[in-house]
């Protein structure tokens, strides 16, 4: 177009390409650090003497799993459902044993599908979530999908 002529020139795409490449690099790096999140629903804590979340089937007894720094304790809401303690194995909580115990409770006694979960004040959140996983069971054999959190117990 020298001299004001009416020639046709291509648009210079190189700066646009630069921007695009930088944007793609940035997005690639950012998406690599996006973690996949899930949610575990819990029922409202019961601060009164009513059973799990106030929505428990009244006819059925319910289970309470208590987490201490030394063991899991499985407790029934009626005398017909016996209590059982599952001690820690070294430093590890026995999640698989808890799942098996809850499975046997569910098959032997007619207990509600919601359970109460309570823990010592110092029990870490990760242990709470792992215990909920152990109590939930699998997709094919669900155990206790509904969990109500109880108050923290101070030792």
């Amino acid at each position: 177009m020298a001299g004001g002529g009416g020639g046709e020139e291509d648009i210079n795409l190189v700066p646009y390409m630069d921007i695009m490449v930088n944007l793609i690099m940035f997005m690639l790096v950012v998406t690599a650090y996006i973690i996949e999140l899930r949610q575990a629903p819990v029922l409202a804590p019961s601060y009164a003497s009513s059973p799990a979340g106030g929505q428990q089937e009244k006819a059925k007894p319910y289970l309470t799993v208590a987490i201490s720094s030394k063991s899991f304790s499985v407790l029934g809401s009626t005398p017909e459902v016996p209590a059982q303690e599952i001690p820690k194995q070294g430093d590890k909580y026995p999640y698989e044993e808890l799942t098996q115990t809850l499975r046997s409770y569910k098959s032997q006694y007619s207990v509600a599908e919601n359970m109460v979960l309570m823990a010592d004040a110092t029990v870490p959140y990760s242990v709470l979530v792992a215990t909920m996983d152990a109590a939930r069971g699998s997709v094919k054999e669900p155990l206790f999908p509904g969990v109500t959190l109880g108050l923290a117990v101070s030792q």
Binding site: E36, P45, Y47, P124, Y125, V129, M132, L151
Partner: peptide
């Protein structure tokens, strides 16, 4: 955070309940 003591979680939920929140969802990593 995974190391948060249960006491704090429980108290936070208690105050959320008082503020009319009724459904709680714990966010976890897949």
């Amino acid at each position: 955070d995974q190391d948060t003591p249960y006491d704090l979680i429980s108290n936070v939920l208690y105050h959320a309940g008082k503020a009319q929140f009724t459904t709680y969802r714990l966010v976890v990593q897949k």
